[in-house]
Design a protein around this nucleic acid. Sequence first.
DNA 1: CCCCAATATTGATAATCATCAATGTATAAG
DNA 2: CTTATACATTGATGATTATCAATATTGGGG
Lengths: 116, 116
Amino acid sequence: MNLLPVLEPATDEACCTPAGPPALGAEEAKQKALVFKALADPNRLRLLSIVKADASGESCVCDLTGPLDLGQPTVSHHLKILVEAGLLHREKRGTWAYYSLVPGALEQTAGLLATL
Amino acid sequence: MNLLPVLEPATDEACCTPAGPPALGAEEAKQKALVFKALADPNRLRLLSIVKADASGESCVCDLTGPLDLGQPTVSHHLKILVEAGLLHREKRGTWAYYSLVPGALEQTAGLLATL
DNA sequence: CCCCAATATTGATAATCATCAATGTATAAG
DNA sequence: CTTATACATTGATGATTATCAATATTGGGG
């Protein structure tokens, strides 16, 4: 049975750094960029904002085409991008599709910036 | 458009809300999208990460063209976008240009998500 | 002054994207 | 079954973007 070194291992080259990740890998960066790509459009930011501001916590497409000055297919397209980015959740009830914020998704995205 | 079922408790709907902004205006959204546009590229995320990970807190262009598989003009272009977004600071000393994180910029960007 | 190294800018090109018109799909009502 | 409504998908188009090659600019020696 070997004993643990009493002092810090002097041979370790990374003994004093706060040990953040050395850098962002190519694949990791590509993955994180996907979320920011979804946020990199003014109309998509407004969609998130409207859904978030709604008292019921969810909005249907017909409630979203009005505030934005966009056609219905364009709004559907943006909503799909937000769903694929993991920011919105889609639930179909009857003829309507209700979109709501994925709980914690915005906070998790904010966390991505801290762990760059 | 559609009628919502009135099943909610309906107690204290106005008195307890934190009174966040009702929604995001078009101009405000356009402004916020600019920052996320700058973050919506894998190579720019890696640039930020490398600058942040550097022990000295700053990196010159010659330190950034290696890790990324990009030419020098492309790296300069990305750095310019990050500077214009208010995320990086540029300081020229001699022939070299040193880039460093703008203090608090990442945290402030994270805050944008909370105030959507 | 001339030359070299580090970085920035310009111009061109291919790829991605936002938008709309037209069409497709599913569900509810009659 | 037929029709209408809510939403999604497709195809096309104009705009934006990422990248590189070539060139310009800046600053430091000789």
